[in-house]
């Protein structure tokens, strides 16, 4: 019953977001272009490097493109589903408008995270999916239905990791008010998601493969398509999702206790 209630709230927000997007069609077109262009920049980088070399850390050109495509799907979904909401969360904490969300009848984390959708991000996730499909085709992969279902499941788990990291970063605003632009830290951390795990060695591997979740969140789903079922990696990813989500929720709640509104 409660779940159905939240689903209704989310659908109402989605409807509102789509109507709003249709009101600002030019803006929608521009943002779609912006995101599309950013994705092209990343694909071009792969093209330029592989014009001079045949392998990066043992990954061929199209394996790398599949990895980058996977990272892009995740980032587009974050942009489409959560970015605007969590970006505004920081601002709202600073301005005191966060009160508005606390007054709503529902879980504050759900309410602050789902108020808006950005259809441009969601639309571009289709382009990112096309990049993955094209790479898989060029690699001559023939994944089974089960493999594809696993890939989708792992993407969902990775999305939880991405969301948790973003929520965690924005929640620091409860403690340090002057954090304008700190959300950008999300992009810095998840820039690693376009790297093959094997490219990081030594201390960098310790921090960015085993410490922060960016590399694993993209490498594990991509590997399922390329190499098939890898139970240990899947368990690792699921474990990370549980830990990071718990940490983000805990941090948000601790922050909430500190929140004392602002202005008048």
């Amino acid at each position: 019953m409660k779940l159905a209630h939240y689903a209704r709230v989310w659908l109402a927000s989605a409807r509102y977001s789509i109507i709003r997007t249709m009101m600002f069609r030019f803006d929608f077109l521009m943002w779609t272009l912006v995101e599309f262009f950013w994705m092209s920049v990343n694909i071009l980088l792969i093209g330029i490097i592989y014009a001079h070399t045949s392998s990066i850390a043992g990954w061929s050109k199209y394996e790398m493109l599949l990895l980058v495509g996977t990272a892009m799907i995740l980032q587009r979904l974050v942009m489409g589903l959560f970015w605007s909401n969590l970006f505004e969360l920081g601002r709202n904490i600073r301005s005191g408008q966060f009160d508005f969300f606390l007054c709503q009848p529902g879980n504050p984390i759900f309410m602050v995270s789902t108020r808006k959708l950005d259809p441009d991000g969601l639309l571009n996730s289709i382009v990112a999916i096309a990049v993955v499909v094209y790479s898989a085709h060029r690699l001559g992969l023939h994944p089974t239905i089960l493999n594809i279902a696993l890939y989708v499941l792992l993407l969902f788990i990775s999305l939880i990791i991405h969301y948790s990291a973003l929520l965690l970063i924005v929640s620091t605003t409860f403690w340090i008010i002057g954090t304008e632009g700190i959300e950008g830290g999300y992009f810095n951390i998840f820039e690693f998601s376009r790297l093959p795990r094997e490219a990081l060695r030594g201390a960098a591997s310790l921090i960015f493969v085993y410490g922060l979740p960016a590399v694993v969140a993209s490498n594990v789903p991509a590997s399922v398509l390329i190499h098939g079922f890898e139970p240990m990696n899947m368990l690792w990813l699921a474990g990370l999702a549980v830990v990071w989500f718990w940490l983000a929720v805990w941090c948000f709640r601790r922050g909430l206790r500190r929140y004392s509104s602002a202005s008048s």
Partner: peptide
């Protein structure tokens, strides 16, 4: 962190 990505990526490409 961007620089670390750059170093990792290009070091691997130069291998």
């Amino acid at each position: 962190t961007h620089l670390i990505v750059v170093v990792a990526l290009w070091s691997a490409a130069y291998h």
